[in-house]
Structure formats: C-alpha cells, structure tokens
Design a protein around this nucleic acid. Structure first.
Length: 259
DNA sequence: ATGCCTCCCCGAGGGAGA
C-alpha cells in the first residue's frame, strides 16, 4: 500500500498538477494539507473519478486537510483534541482496512513565525496536543501513522543552508525539542530510515530561485508507530514534481507499506 | 533579507506562508 503526504498549497491552484501526479504515482492513500477550501467547494469528483474516496476538513482561505483513499475511509474524525477553542482545520483521522487496519492521521502543523510571539506560542501548544494524541497511538499499540506538513526541520542535514534557519520557528531548538519528544515516544521517521544523509528536501520556496539553487528543507514527514514501521517497505520523495507546471512549493513524500 | 513569489480573499491590495 502506497501512502503519500502532499501540501498542495491550495486545491484550486492545483486542480491540474494534483490529478497529474495521482495518475503518474498511483498512491493508494494521500494525506493533503493546505487545501485552502471549505468542504463544500472541494472538487470531490476530480478524485472520485479516479477511484478515490474523499474526506475533508476544510475552512475558508487558509489551512485545511483532506484524505484520499482507494479503500473506504472509516471512523473519520476531524480536529486535533485538546483545545475546543481552536477552530483551525489542521488535523484529520481515518481508518483504512487492508490485510490489517491502519489508522491514518493527517496534519498541518502551524508555521509559528514570527518567533517569539503568539503564533509561536500556538505552534508549541499545538505540538503538545499532538504529543498527547501520539502517546495514545503508541499506548494502544496501533498500526498507525501521523503524516503531513510538520513545519519542522528536524536536523541541520535537513536544510541546504541550515544557518539561514537558526532563528526561524521551523528550526529553533525549542521546536526541534518538541518534535523529538514526539518521535521519541517510539515513532519512526519513515523517509530517514530508507534515505540517510543530507540533500533530501520536500519544500523549496517560490522566491529567490530556491528550486533552481536546490535551496530546500525537509519538513514533510511520515511518523510510524512501531507496529506500522514493522511493515515499512520503502520511502521516497517525488522531487521532480517541483519542476513541473504550476507546482506547489512542497512535493509529495511517500511510503510503501506491506499491508 | 521584517521576503526576491504565490496563495487566498474577490475584483484592490493586504494577510499568510516558510
């Protein structure tokens, strides 16, 4: 089962590039971030025509997450627990059942800039809520994954120019500490287990020719519970998508699971 | 680089992104 995460930076702007990638890459499941659309405006038929079931958690203009799946989506829940007052659409869960059941968690973690400030406070608070949900997945010994745009550069090797990010909310020590607290519950960074070393990125800024200079960062991650990591077969980044017509600033990151 | 693009809102130009 091929599962991908892809921050599309707006479903309306990606109405051609996203289906083109789906037709070429043929993932079984896709966790989408930044759909920037309300649920009613999401072009469901675009994906149903290709054999996908669709679950969305959108809002107007900003954020928004969705799941596409060739298998039926069961037990869909929306919103990250822990703060009833948080109305930002950044979290969605669903279960798909292949040879065994797999719990999917799709996430769009807050950017947090500028730091320090209220946006950074929100990021750290959101990460603490994420840690709590992550601990439940570990405790339940679930075959589960949490995938999406984490807006976290885990290590210096995950940036082409790490020195440019030292005061950025994506790379501050407090951000990386919070990310490690989650990973260290027992998760596997799927891409890293299959692709060690520097030079692997999932985001290139639209500005300053970042793509042409390969000035990227790796901030889109798939974290697997131990029971899920047991089934990991392969992982990769579809880097070439960044060079196609009207691309998102992120590219798909994918795994193959024996499920 | 307190931002060189691109997204969203909609129908100008500002907020947000990373």
């Amino acid at each position: 089962m091929k599962i991908a995460t892809f921050n599309i930076n707006g479903i309306k702007a990606r109405a051609e590039a996203l289906p083109n990638w789906l037709d070429a890459a043929r993932p079984d499941v896709v966790l989408l971030q930044e759909i920037k659309s309300v649920d009613e405006a999401f072009p469901v038929s675009l994906f149903e025509d290709r054999g996908y079931n669709v679950a969305t958690h959108g809002q107007k203009s900003f954020n928004g997450v969705a799941i596409l799946s060739k298998l039926p989506l069961e037990d869909v829940t929306r919103g990250l627990p822990g703060d009833e007052a948080d109305d930002q659409a950044r979290w969605i869960e669903a279960t798909v059942v292949g040879k065994t059941a797999l719990r999917l968690c799709g996430l769009y973690l807050p950017n947090g800039n500028p730091a320090p400030g209220p946006k950074y406070d929100y990021k750290l608070a959101w990460m603490e809520r994420l840690r709590a949900r992550a601990a439940e997945l570990i405790a339940g010994e679930e075959v589960a994954l949490m995938a999406g745009d984490y807006n976290v550069i885990p290590q210096a090797e995950d940036a082409a120019r790490p020195q440019a990010w030292v005061e950025d909310a994506l790379f501050l020590p407090q951000t990386r500490d919070a990310f490690r607290r989650i990973v260290n519950l027992g998760f596997t960074d799927a891409f890293r287990t299959r692709n060690p070393g520097p030079g692997h990125y999932s985001f290139w800024d639209y500005q300053a020719g970042a793509w042409n200079r390969n000035d990227g960062i790796r901030i889109d991650h798939l974290l697997l519970t131990p029971q899920c990591a047991d089934r990991l077969v392969d992982a990769g980044i579809d880097k070439e998508v960044r060079g196609l017509e009207k691309p998102s600033d992120h590219v798909p990151v994918w795994i193959e699971l024996d499920l």
